[in-house]
Amino acid sequence: MNKKGLNICLVDDDRIYQFTARKIIETIEEVDGVKVFSNGEEAISYLQQNSYKTEDLPDVIFLDINMPVMDGWGFLEAFSDLYKKLGKLVTVFMVSSSVDESDIRRSKEFGMVSRYVNKPVSREKFEDLLKTITDTHKQQ
């Protein structure tokens, strides 16, 4: 991996969670920047507009399930098509307060979803998740 850190995308409609998660993520050494979107449609629009600029694409997306306009499932369906066209590996972590087994099973149907993570997410959990990404990049 080069000296540049990870670009993170946080997709969640909860403003308090956005604020706290962003502040935590920004303090993690491996992170270069964090973009925040309040629903899946905003995030998909950004990704489509920047699909040809790999340096602007996220390395990691933390995605909530329940959001207005376009929820996490709608995002994943739209992102499935876009994902194949990106010139960059993007890892998605589903982050939700839902402990419903059907949500966990459904998240596994999307190949780009690396893991299902229950809220709240601690600093240590964010660090562990991001470490798996930086370790993978170092091996490439």
Rank of each mutant, 00 (worst) to 15 (best):
F126G: 02
F62D: 09
V69T: 04
S102T: 13
E29K: 13
Q139P: 00
P68A: 09
N7K: 13
I65C: 03
F75G: 09
K125H: 06
S114V: 11
D103Y: 11
N39T: 02
S122C: 10
V36T: 14
K125Q: 09
E41N: 15
K108W: 02
L130I: 04
I24Q: 13
Q18T: 06
W73I: 08
E29V: 02
L76H: 05
L47S: 11
F75K: 12
T27N: 12
V36W: 12
W73G: 01
K3W: 03
F62E: 05
T132C: 02
D100Q: 13
L86A: 07
I16N: 14
K4M: 14
E124H: 11
G40Q: 05
R105M: 11
M1E: 01
M112S: 00
N2I: 01
S45T: 15
L86N: 05
R115S: 06
R15A: 12
S97Q: 09
L10D: 05
K84Y: 09
V31L: 03
S45H: 14
A78I: 09
V95P: 03
G87S: 08
Y17V: 11
M70T: 04
Y116E: 11
S107I: 07
M70S: 03
Q139R: 15
I44F: 06
Y52P: 02
F93P: 02
M1W: 00
V60E: 00
G72W: 06
V11L: 05
V36H: 12
S38N: 14
G33N: 14
N118G: 05
L82W: 10
D12G: 07
K4V: 14
A43M: 02
I61Y: 04
T27S: 10
K3C: 06
S97V: 10
K119S: 04
V36I: 15
D12P: 01
D14K: 09
Q139W: 04
G5K: 12
D128H: 09
S114H: 12
M112K: 07
V99T: 15
G33W: 01
I24K: 09
S51N: 11
E26G: 03
K88Y: 05
L86Y: 05
Y52A: 13
F19K: 07
Q139V: 03
S80I: 09
I25N: 07
D32V: 02
K138C: 06
Y83Q: 14
K4H: 10
S107T: 00
D64M: 14
I133C: 01
V36D: 06
L47D: 10
V92F: 00
R105T: 11
I25W: 03
N118M: 05
F37N: 02
